[in-house]
Design a binder for these strands. Sequence first.
DNA 1: ATTCAACTTGACCCTGGGGTCAAGTTTCGT
DNA 2: ACGAAACTTGACCCCAGGGTCAAGTTGAAT
Lengths: 209, 209
Amino acid sequence: MRADAQRNAEKLRTAAAELFHERGLQAPLKEIARRAGVSHGTLYNLFGTREALIDEVVTDLAAARLGEVAEQALAHEDAWGGFAYYIETLCELQATDPAISDVVAGRYPDAERLMAVCERSHTAAARIIERAQQAGTLRPDFTHEDLLFIFGTNALVARAAKDTAPDAWRRGVAFMLDGLRSEAAHPLPTGPLTSRQLYQVMGNLTGTP
Amino acid sequence: MRADAQRNAEKLRTAAAELFHERGLQAPLKEIARRAGVSHGTLYNLFGTREALIDEVVTDLAAARLGEVAEQALAHEDAWGGFAYYIETLCELQATDPAISDVVAGRYPDAERLMAVCERSHTAAARIIERAQQAGTLRPDFTHEDLLFIFGTNALVARAAKDTAPDAWRRGVAFMLDGLRSEAAHPLPTGPLTSRQLYQVMGNLTGTP
DNA sequence: ATTCAACTTGACCCTGGGGTCAAGTTTCGT
DNA sequence: ACGAAACTTGACCCCAGGGTCAAGTTGAAT
């Protein structure tokens, strides 16, 4: 790769990181190129697809953030505390960083590294759920898919309320969390989604193709 | 108004009602005209704006549906039962009729008759909430705005899951409802939205201009 | 039957997103 | 310092949605 191309790629990575952070992973590619001071043709030359760019720009950040949250959640002595921490902190992360929000809620099958990160994050989440259920504080009919669903809706809520009431998501999450304790549980009307279904629904929810 | 214009208006109303029902109130106006077998220019001539069309086509249906649900909810002997019925039934309505879903979740300030219907619906909802709170079964920190917020998110969830898992919304609502009982309540992290804030957030949430 | 206002039409414009590629420019090895 | 390969550019194409309006058509009053 020629030196100038290297430089442009770097400028594009920077601009993309900024715009993804500000506006989420659907930020227009042309605008990213504009901010980088480069033609959009160059963006297509150097990265080819949006997902390739995402994979380069967002993956490491996401891995760090998600890993840290999961770790801290498992570090809680109290299983319910860890579970609640996990949900609250991830939702907070979604509210403050649209890019991360989209990673958690979206579908980017062609971003390989990113998918691996999600994979890891999912198994961590499963552990957090299981621990709280074994402690008897989290209702036993709650599933991993329900958790992701929560993040999916929170992504939208947080984005919609960002400028008007940046903390609006907290109330919804708090109500929800109160409904997830074992003591609060009443029988559910429907079984959980399959992961296949979840995948599709999350896609529609966040407008990921 | 000339007879042919009358006929066209009728065809357009019918087509609009169908498409709004199938796809929600953002259905492309050109497609409505196409389905009516009429030029889109005619649609603009006869109705002017999307909201005018909505107001003519959706208001009566919405009034009937919303009115009935509220009435039945208040007819419940049990205040909590009435509250839960109201939420569940309205959410179900959202899941089965995208047009109603958008009415409940959206913003259409220029559709005067529709706004009046919403107004009425809101005061009914307030009564349902208050009754359940006075009975001591609904947590006292729950507000009208929280309720509308629930409908706002449910609109998105129901739409996203429609084709994949038409009942997916039920689980989320059930968790939520379990969190709204007085026994489940833990202190909330934030105060409620003002109605002004809610208005803006709902607008962003549903993409209503 | 004529006439003219009322109405309809579809070509046209705009916006904003995605994407391509021939022609021009720059880097780098020799 | 030169030439080939690598790279960049921006004009161009696509699509889908909103919206306008001059020209043509039709209804109905006289």
